[in-house]
Write a protein that binds this DNA or RNA. Structure first.
Lengths: 224, 224
DNA sequence: TACTTGAATTAACATTGCTCGTCAAGGCTC
DNA sequence: GAGCCTTGACGAGCAATGTTAATTCAAGTA
């Protein structure tokens, strides 16, 4: 049984305008019917939307941010979703980024202290070399799996890593490729965040090519 | 278990009159029963009807190239696929790019001459203003639709356009947004190609954000 | 047979939903 | 408190949809 837009708006207590905006941006699924393309909603989709579980990343994807605030928001949203889903969550980034992310998370969740104490949310910084970092992830993923974690979430602010600072951006891409192979062996959902302000178009293209899970189509058709 | 017209109308939240109109036009399958030819509906047909209407047969995506050869290859592949699919195909780009694309296409297809003569493959260059270019696409899409084209393919080398040359890259993004709205009204598959070598990371991020169809997830979660 | 019922057809007309703008008010964040 | 973004609200224009009514016809019933 489908709901029309008025019923959906009443159910969620929002305006029809908001529903239209959300569906247009792809945040909320909706069916279209008839020549006027009227919106019809499934109850399950609406409930999933309010629970915030509609947009869980899968696999190994990346995100681009254009402001520090956006970085904080993206990271906090992903980690919050992961905690809600019961995943073991990691955030890798410069120490000075930890604080705003934690603050943002704390605003929404009361059990942050528990998550930190219980090692369900782990903040870390990137190692100086790709090899070290990969060894770190491998150890953590194995440990988490051994401890019975059913899913793991990783959010990394790659642009803040020492590896991304120097002139050898190719190393970052090699790291990403290796990370993709590693994480594919565990139930890990990863989003690597990049600062669009500090990278060139070519570097950005390389980043995208290193995250095929992002796209609907084969990445080779999109970036070359 | 078949649904009568009242039940079907309740399921889809539409009036019985609409169901009658749609079935009369052959848009929605229905069974007729008895000497009075009463309508009976299958659940699967009804759901396929809404799903089918909401599935976007059209898309507006972008691609990034890092070399002139890559640009040629991407454009030729897309146009070749479009011709194979029987679409009316457009390539918009600087005149000096037309030739290598045509050459690459000719390598795979013998009927290129026919396609060009028959206006199934049309090469063009970008107009100097966004408004002009949008008017051009609108006219072409309407003409193609009127002439019975069932699908249209557009490939554009946006980085080569005059619009993208100046300092006002924001204009390009506005153009993309407007193009997305326009093309959504026609059965058009579009890929806008960008030169990763000439754009900054910020510009590239803007380009990606302007092409939500590219991604598996809501673009707002990926680029901000 | 005559009558009633319910659905289909056709038509005219009023309503509604969509898109695209714009704009002010209200929450969050800092 | 200042700034930013989202939300809610409104209007125009358009086309499909909803509504109502008259009519026809098959099927069930007295």
């Amino acid at each position: 049984m489908l709901l029309d837009i008025a019923e959906a708006a009443a159910l969620l207590r929002v305006s029809e305008a908001s529903l239209r905006r959300w569906t247009n941006r792809g945040l909320l699924p909706c069916l279209r019917i008839g020549g006027r393309r009227e919106r019809r909603f499934r109850r399950a989709d609406l409930m999933a939307f309010v629970e915030g579980q509609s947009a869980t990343p899968t696999g190994h994807i990346c995100g681009l941010y254009t402001s520090d605030r956006a970085r904080t928001r993206q990271a906090a949203r992903l980690l919050g979703d992961g905690l809600d889903a019961g995943s073991v969550c990691f955030f890798a980034g410069q120490p000075d980024v930890h604080e705003p992310v934690l603050a943002q998370l704390a605003r929404r969740r009361r059990s942050l202290r528990n998550a930190l104490d219980g090692q369900r949310l782990i903040l870390t910084r990137y190692a100086d070399s790709a090899a070290q970092q990969l060894a770190f992830w491998k150890a953590k993923f194995e440990a988490a799996t051994r401890d019975g974690a059913r899913s793991i979430r990783v959010v990394g602010d790659v642009s803040g890593a020492a590896l991304a600072r120097g002139d050898g951006f190719a190393r970052v891409l090699e790291y990403e490729a290796a990370y993709g192979r590693l994480s594919g062996r565990f139930p890990v959902n990863t989003q690597c965040l990049y600062d669009a302000r500090v990278h060139s178009g070519l570097e950005t293209a390389g980043v995208l090519a290193a995250h095929p899970d992002l796209f609907r189509q084969p990445v080779a058709h999109l970036v070359s």
